[in-house]
Amino acid sequence: GTEIELESKNGQREHYTATSEDEARKIIEKAVRRGIKRIELRGASEQLIRDMQEIAKQIGLQYRTDGSL
């Protein structure tokens, strides 16, 4: 699965493990709508990382991946 670590603007951290790319995408989209400061992805697919970079650029988000592409 993909591990997703979120940090909201007030510094609250949340951790999710998505079993599918679809689920990961839903978690990320929800977080973005809620207003999130930072997202870290571990074990994400190349496609998901590309999507994440696109989203991050659009809304000026900090993100990090573990680089295991």
Rank of each mutant, 00 (worst) to 15 (best):
G1F: 13
G1V: 14
T2M: 12
T2E: 01
T2H: 04
T2F: 13
E3S: 11
E3F: 14
E3V: 10
I4G: 00
I4K: 01
I4A: 00
E5N: 10
E5P: 00
L6D: 01
L6H: 01
L6T: 07
L6P: 01
L6S: 01
E7A: 04
E7V: 13
E7D: 04
E7R: 07
E7W: 13
S8D: 14
S8C: 14
S8A: 08
S8M: 15
S8E: 10
N10G: 09
N10E: 11
N10H: 08
G11Q: 02
G11S: 03
Q12M: 10
Q12N: 09
Q12G: 08
R13D: 01
R13P: 03
E14Y: 09
E14F: 14
H15L: 15
H15R: 09
Y16D: 00
Y16I: 08
T17P: 03
T17F: 13
T17M: 14
T17N: 07
A18L: 08
A18I: 08
A18W: 08
A18M: 05
A18K: 03
A18N: 09
T19K: 11
T19V: 13
T19H: 14
T19R: 14
S20E: 03
S20L: 03
S20F: 03
S20H: 05
E21T: 10
E21W: 06
E21C: 06
E21R: 05
E21Y: 13
D22V: 07
D22E: 11
D22P: 06
D22T: 07
D22Y: 08
E23I: 05
A24V: 09
A24H: 00
A24S: 02
A24M: 05
R25N: 01
R25I: 09
R25H: 04
K26V: 09
K26Y: 08
K26D: 13
I27D: 00
I27P: 00
I27Y: 10
I27N: 00
I27V: 04
I27T: 01
I28M: 05
I28K: 00
I28E: 00
E29L: 12
E29W: 14
E29I: 07
E29Q: 10
K30I: 12
A31I: 04
A31D: 00
A31R: 02
A31T: 02
A31K: 02
V32A: 06
V32C: 09
V32G: 01
R33G: 10
R33W: 06
R33D: 07
R33Q: 14
R33L: 13
R33N: 09
R34M: 11
R34G: 11
R34T: 09
R34S: 08
G35R: 04
I36D: 06
I36P: 02
I36L: 09
I36W: 03
I36S: 03
K37I: 14
K37Y: 09
R38N: 04
R38G: 05
R38I: 06
R38H: 08
I39N: 00
E40F: 13
L41E: 01
R42G: 04
R42W: 13
R42V: 08
G43P: 09
G43S: 04
G43W: 07
G43K: 04
G43V: 02
A44K: 01
A44C: 07
S45L: 03
E46Y: 05
E46R: 07
E46W: 07
E46T: 08
Q47V: 06
Q47F: 05
Q47N: 11
Q47S: 11
Q47W: 06
L48W: 02
L48E: 01
L48R: 00
I49T: 05
I49L: 11
I49E: 05
I49Y: 10
I49H: 09
R50Q: 08
R50Y: 04
R50V: 07
D51A: 11
D51W: 15
D51Q: 08
D51S: 07
D51F: 15
M52V: 15
M52W: 04
M52T: 09
M52S: 02
M52N: 00
Q53C: 13
Q53N: 11
Q53E: 12
Q53Y: 13
Q53R: 09
Q53T: 09
Q53K: 11
Q53M: 11
E54T: 10
E54V: 07
I55P: 00
I55S: 01
I55T: 03
I55D: 01
I55F: 14
I55K: 03
I55E: 01
A56S: 05
A56T: 05
A56D: 01
A56F: 14
A56N: 03
K57N: 11
K57V: 07
K57R: 14
Q58T: 11
Q58C: 12
Q58E: 12
Q58L: 10
Q58Y: 06
Q58V: 06
I59S: 14
I59R: 10
I59L: 15
I59C: 15
I59Q: 14
I59N: 15
I59P: 02
I59W: 15
I59E: 14
G60R: 06
G60A: 06
G60C: 15
G60H: 06
G60W: 07
G60Q: 07
G60T: 04
G60K: 06
L61V: 08
L61H: 04
L61E: 05
Q62S: 09
Q62N: 06
Q62V: 15
Q62Y: 14
Q62M: 11
Q62K: 10
Y63P: 03
Y63C: 15
Y63N: 07
Y63I: 15
Y63G: 06
R64Q: 15
R64L: 15
R64G: 14
R64W: 15
T65W: 06
T65F: 06
D66E: 09
D66H: 06
D66Q: 04
D66K: 03
D66A: 04
G67W: 02
G67T: 08
G67H: 06
G67M: 06
G67C: 15
G67L: 09
S68L: 12
S68N: 09
S68R: 03
S68C: 15
S68H: 08
L69M: 12
L69T: 07
L69F: 15
L69G: 09
L69D: 11
L69S: 11
